[in-house]
Design a protein around this nucleic acid. Structure first.
Length: 592
RNA sequence: GCCGAGGUAGCUCAACGGUAGAGCAAUCGCUUCGUAAGCGAUAGGUUGUGGGUUCGAGUCCCAUCCUCGGCUCCA
């Protein structure tokens, strides 16, 4: 067969294609090992994925961690045999006979969807129905590790059987595997759920319910810094802040269409004096109410209402995940009411704002996705087409590269999603910018035009951070808990050596606080090393140390959380420098 | 929701179906110390919750809540 892929030459980096071939080859060997060790296991599919591979099995045996070690050992043993992967073209009939005879019903199902001839790939004793893309032989399968086992529906369909998926990863070079495992370990260390507890930022409670976040004082300090930062930028950008209630009569959601299109994600009705009310799943209908409270001239448009709007959505229990996926969250929401002719400029400004905001948090790598009309949607096709074209034009004009996500739009309009890469290269969904021609028609949201007539507004729904919950989750992992000064919950800790420095320390803490910094004064009778250790573990950016020598010299010794030291600063200098660093929202310490 | 794994002191973890324990944290006392852990004592628990089996349940069974790895979905 011609589609054998060569491993990279020693010392050269592996291509995507070669890695996929290695991992796909691993999947075959995995399937072989599993079928040897666990007779009665049916095979399904085993593709390479971004940084590894998996194989889905239907087995009477429940795989556990110990099994993974056994399977892995057998795989490496098989690999040592240097078995060639040999492909053979077979007719569908022959293939069907082959798989039927072995009771491999999933393979038969796959086969029935294929046309023409198919290929069988064999190595050692194992044959799989497969379109190819392997290495020459099993000899390169050496630096491989099975990682986890998890449930997965056959064909990703929850109505189909639940299979067991074994995940693994593999590399050509030992160091690459090691580096990958180190990255996974690094990601675990940065896990926002772990850091959230260690840094005392937030919690959830069984007695309250899953996916409902409680922000502790430190988490709230962090969040408020973000809120204020954003508020400044938005107000400069012509946004007006509003606030709206958390529950509303079902009437509102009947008119908006949410009840019809979104009810799966809405909490059930509450009876209020015989009328059904709902927890709000979105802020848009409320903003429409505010817009409609009086007539608007074309001269006022665009009108931009912003709200840190808390919404409640019913998410299935199995999908909840720390701060990333919760049941109550606060969007940095806004709705722009404008004319058709204003869309392109408005979206352009918005995209620029997004870039500015992400870079203020230290995200540089930005990617856009244009999502088009989904199956479940309302509104005329022409409106959809028009809206989609306008979004594409705005993206092109902004010089932002984008990919299309066909069918990924909201039910009321197409959208632009923005994803960013974090410090360790993972991609996260952030902003969503959605055009909406539908809600204005459902609610009759109009403005008075130049000729004294009326026309429907166009609404732009957008959230730049997405939600504070998710964004903070990403930020925690991005910074590994080491927030830049302007975000750090505690910005400075003043540490004394003995109680002889108490008065000076209070004075310094007071001056820092007066300058608007978040300060904690640690004047306990503890060794300095102890206080430093605690402050370092809390990831406080700056420690201001006052000992007898400092007080005598009228200075303060500053230690950064990375261990660097800046000695001999006058207290006023420290206050001024930190105030400036916080004001400019510097992402790196400016003191050292 | 589904498949799988879990839930023991504030945290990290022990405990064969047979007296629930350690380290850190906390509290109290002593220690006044120069850049990542000073010493001692004390206290801390309806073993997530509710049932059941058993002479006896943290341990076995059932239900339920919550958490974790995924599937699906998504801000």
């Amino acid at each position: 067969m011609s589609d054998i892929i060569a491993p990279p030459k020693p010392g050269t980096p592996a291509s995507r294609e070669a890695l996929d071939a290695l991992r796909h080859s691993c999947a075959h060997v995995l399937a072989q090992a599993v079928q040897e060790l666990f007779p009665g296991t049916k095979i399904t599919i085993g593709p390479p994925i971004d940084d590894g591979f998996y194989y889905d099995f239907d087995s009477p045996h429940r795989f556990n961690e110990d099994d993974l070690a056994r399977i892995e050992a057998r795989m490496l043993e098989v690999a040592k045999g240097n078995h060639a992967f040999s492909g053979r073209v077979v007719s569908k009939d022959e293939s069907r006979d082959y798989w039927l005879k072995r009771g491999e019903t999933y393979k038969v199902e796959i086969l029935d969807e294929l046309t023409g001839t198919v290929t069988h790939y064999t190595h050692d004793t194992f044959t799989d129905l497969c379109r190819g893309g392997h290495l020459q032989d099993t000899s390169s399968i050496r630096h491989m590790k099975l990682l986890s086992v998890a449930g997965a529906y056959w064909r990703g369909d929850e109505k189909r059987p639940m299979l067991q998926r074994i995940y693994g990863t593999a590399f050509f070079a030992k160091d690459d595997l090691k580096a990958h495992l180190t990255r996974l370990e690094e990601a675990r260390k940065r896990d926002h759920r772990k850091l959230g507890e260690e840094l005392d930022l937030f919690s959830t409670h069984q007695t309250v319910g899953a996916g409902l976040i409680h922000w502790h004082p430190k988490g709230t300090a962090l969040r408020r810094s973000m809120e204020e930062h954003l508020r400044g930028l938005l107000e400069k950008g012509g946004y007006q802040f509003v606030m709206t209630p958390h529950v509303a009569s079902e009437e509102l959601y009947k008119t908006s269409g949410h009840l019809q299109n979104y009810s799966d994600l809405m909490y059930g009705p509450m009876d209020i004096e015989g009328n059904p009310f709902r927890a709000k799943p979105m802020n848009c209908p409320n903003h429409i109410m505010i817009f409609q409270s009086r007539l608007h001239s074309y001269k006022e448009l665009p009108i931009r209402y912003a709200e840190y709007g808390t919404v409640y959505r019913f998410e299935r229990s199995g999908v909840l995940h720390g701060l990333m996926r919760v049941r109550g969250f606060t969007q940095d929401d806004a709705h722009i009411f404008c004319r058709l002719s204003q869309i392109e400029e408005e979206i352009g400004v918005l995209l620029k704002l997004c870039g500015e905001i992400y870079s203020s948090f230290g995200f540089a790598d930005i990617k856009c996705y244009l999502s088009t009309k989904p199956e479940k949607s309302t509104g005329e096709s022409e409106l959809w087409d028009q809206a989609t074209v306008l979004l594409g034009q705005a993206l092109s004009a902004s010089n932002l590269p984008f990919e299309k996500d066909e069918g990924g739009g909201a039910f009321y309009g197409p959208k632009i999603d923005i994803k960013v890469k974090d410090a360790i290269g993972r991609e996260w969904q952030m902003a969503t910018i959605q055009l909406d021609f539908v809600l204005p028609r459902r609610f009759g949201v109009k403005y008075r035009d130049e000729k004294g007539g009326e026309d429907f507004v166009v609404m732009i729904h957008r959230a730049i951070l997405g939600s504070f919950e998710r964004f903070i989750g990403v930020l925690i992992e991005h910074y590994g808990g080491k927030f830049p000064l302007w975000l750090a919950p505690v910005q400075v800790k003043v540490l004394t050596l003995t109680d002889a420095q108490d008065a000076k320390a209070s004075e310094l803490a007071g001056a820092l606080r007066a300058a608007g910094l978040r300060v904690v004064l640690d004047q306990r009778v503890e060794k300095l090393g102890h206080k430093i250790r605690e402050a370092t573990l809390e990831k406080v950016p700056y420690m201001a140390v006052l000992g007898p020598k400092d007080v005598e010299a009228g200075v303060v010794s500053v230690r950064l959380r990375d261990g660097r030291q800046v000695n001999g600063l006058r207290p006023e200098e420290l206050v001024a420098k930190l105030t400036e660093e916080a004001r400019t929202k510097s992402l790196v310490p400016t003191l050292a």
